[in-house]
Simulated scan of single mutants.
Amino acid sequence: MSSALHRKLQLYASLSGADLGKLSDALRQTRQVNARIDIAVEGDDPRTVYVILHGWAGRCRYLPDGRRQITSLLLPGDCCDPHVFLFRRRDHTITALTPVVIASIPGPVFQELVARSPALELAFFFETMIAGSIQREVAVCLGRRSGLERLAHLLCELHARQTAVALAEGRDCPMPLNQGDLADALGQTPVHINRMLQELRRLGLISLRQRRLTIHDADGLAELASFNPTYLHALDTARREDAR
Rank of each mutant, 00 (worst) to 15 (best):
A57H: 04
G58K: 07
G58N: 04
G58F: 08
G58E: 06
G58D: 05
G58R: 12
G58H: 08
R59D: 09
R59G: 15
C60S: 13
C60Q: 15
C60R: 14
R61C: 08
Y62Q: 15
Y62M: 08
Y62F: 15
Y62I: 05
Y62R: 13
L63S: 13
L63M: 10
L63R: 15
P64I: 03
D65Q: 13
D65C: 02
G66S: 07
G66D: 07
R67P: 01
R68C: 07
R68T: 06
R68P: 00
R68N: 01
R68S: 03
R68M: 12
Q69E: 07
Q69V: 06
Q69M: 08
Q69T: 13
I70H: 01
I70R: 02
T71F: 03
T71Q: 04
S72P: 00
S72V: 04
S72N: 10
S72H: 07
L73N: 01
L73V: 11
L74H: 08
L74Y: 04
L74K: 02
L75C: 09
L75F: 09
P76M: 00
P76C: 00
P76Q: 00
G77D: 02
G77S: 06
D78N: 10
D78Y: 02
C79W: 09
C79G: 03
C80L: 14
C80E: 11
C80T: 11
D81S: 15
P82V: 05
P82K: 05
H83M: 12
H83T: 11
V84H: 11
V84W: 03
V84E: 06
V84Q: 08
V84K: 07
V84M: 07
F85W: 14
F85C: 09
F85K: 05
L86F: 13
L86V: 10
L86C: 07
L86I: 14
L86D: 08
F87K: 13
F87N: 13
F87T: 14
R88H: 11
R88T: 14
R89P: 00
R89A: 04
R90M: 12
R90P: 00
R90W: 02
R90G: 04
H92V: 02
H92L: 08
H92T: 05
H92Q: 10
H92N: 11
H92Y: 12
T93W: 04
T93D: 05
T93S: 12
I94K: 02
I94P: 01
T95Q: 14
T95E: 10
